[in-house]
Amino acid sequence: MKFETGMENNTSDLCDGGECEGCPTDPTLLIEFKHAIHALGGKWKLEILFTLMNGSVRFGALRRALVPITQHVLTAQLRELEHDGLVARKVLAEKPLQVEYELTDSAWGLTPAFRELLAWSKLFGPRRHAEANRTTLEAEPG
C-alpha cells in the first residue's frame, strides 16, 4: 500500500539524492543553516525580533511587551542579536539615559520568513492543537 504525504511534489528533478550543488545534504548549506538557527535560536529572540517589527522600542517598553521576560534575559538576548547584526542599539541623548532598539536591514530581511511562519501556524497550529486535545479526551477513561 502506498501512502501519499503531500510532499511528493516538493522533490526536485535536478537532484537525485547524489552530491550536487544546492543539494540539501551539502555540508556547506548545513553550516549556513546552523549559523542562521544559532542567530535566531535562543530564549525570546524571535519574540524580540517580532516586537521590533513595529519600529524602534525603548528597553523598558520592550520588557513590558514581553512579560514575563526578565531584565537579565532581555539584556543577554539583545546583546546576542546585536552581535549577530540583527538589532541596533541606540543611546538617546536624554537624562536619565535611555536606550532604544531597532531592527537592522539584515533583520528586516527576515520578514518573508516570519510571514511564512505565521501562515504555517494558521494552517497547522490550530489543527495540531485540536488533534492533541482530541487525543487527550479519547485517552481519558470515561
Rank of each mutant, 00 (worst) to 15 (best):
A39W: 04
P112D: 07
R58M: 01
A61E: 15
H129M: 14
S56Q: 14
A65M: 03
D105Q: 09
D13S: 11
E100M: 11
A119F: 00
V67F: 13
E138H: 12
W120H: 02
A61K: 12
L29W: 05
M7V: 03
L46N: 06
G18E: 10
L29Y: 09
T11G: 11
C15S: 13
T28N: 06
G41Q: 12
S12H: 00
H83G: 07
A39T: 10
W120F: 10
E140F: 14
P68C: 08
K122R: 07
A76T: 09
E32N: 07
G18H: 13
D105C: 03
L81Y: 10
A139W: 08
P96W: 10
E4N: 09
A119Y: 00
A36L: 09
L110D: 07
A113P: 03
M53T: 04
T111I: 02
G55E: 04
C23E: 08
A88S: 01
L52K: 04
Y101R: 07
L78R: 05
W120M: 01
A76G: 05
A88I: 02
P126W: 02
T11L: 09
N54I: 06
G142N: 13
A93F: 08
T51L: 04
A36F: 04
H129G: 09
G6T: 07
L52Y: 12
V91Q: 08
I37G: 01
G42P: 07
E19F: 15
G22Q: 08
E140T: 06
Q71A: 15
G42V: 07
N10T: 00
